[in-house]
Design a protein around this nucleic acid. Structure first.
Length: 206
DNA sequence: GACCAGGCACATC
DNA sequence: GATGTGCATGGT
């Protein structure tokens, strides 16, 4: 995939906080729509934890409207901000010293942050070696006949983390490439692509 | 106009 | 524990 597509430069975002906000906004949503919401927040100079925390819920919702589910996501962002206030006084740098598993449990305790969002924040915002699996990852693996249809999130995550060394750059690029491939030609409804270089790798891993 | 997009929580059985 | 449902915009 890397040879074919080149480096992904993920996650798009200038700060840890921006990346985390993007992770919440992109839940079940096209990134293009998320980018518009992020743009709104930046233009309003509100893309920092303290300002966003002080914002009224309905005002926040209006700014992130293009990302869809905007009332729901405004609540989820606020829950995350409450977490940031209590856990690190809005300074995400302070989270870096914490153990990954401990941090993961804490993130999963936030209403609105599920496993994929937690792992995205861990990997891309906090640079911890937590492999992110998503709808594309599951779909691609299923099309290659590697995993059952009803596999649980945690199981699929372990599938990758068991065979890959805990390398942040590897996890970063691998997930990014899976999404880029998944959003592109693997979206076609072919049952199994024999010519796909990913297929041979995944077969080996399995 | 239907269908899809980088999920998650909650109600119900 | 499994299954169904609401949440909503913008691109194809």
């Amino acid at each position: 995939m890397f040879d074919e597509l080149g480096p992904s430069h993920w996650w798009p975002g200038e700060t840890r906080f921006e990346i985390a906000v993007g992770a919440i906004l992109t839940q079940n949503t096209n990134w293009q729509n998320v980018a518009k919401a992020i743009r709104n927040l930046k233009d309003a100079r509100l893309l920092n934890p303290k300002s966003m925390y002080a914002l009224a819920m309905e005002d926040l919702a209006e700014l992130i409207r293009p990302a869809g589910y905007f009332r729901l996501k405004a609540k989820r962002l606020h829950h995350f901000l409450v977490f940031l206030r209590s856990s690190c006084r809005f300074d995400m740098e302070q989270l870096l010293s914490r153990e990954m598993d401990d941090l993961r449990r804490a993130l999963l305790g936030v209403n609105g942050i599920g496993p994929e969002t937690a792992d995205s924040i861990l990997l891309y915002a906090l640079e911890k070696p937590s492999f992110v699996v998503d709808a594309y990852t599951a779909r691609i693996c299923q099309r290659h006949g590697l995993i059952p249809e009803d596999i649980a999130y945690e199981e699929l995550r372990e599938f990758f983390m068991d065979v890959l060394s805990p390398d942040i750059r590897l996890f970063n690029e691998f997930h990014a490439l899976l999404v880029r491939v998944g959003a592109g030609w693997c979206k076609k409804k072919h049952p199994r692509c024999s010519s796909c270089p990913l297929g041979s790798f995944l077969q080996g891993a399995a």
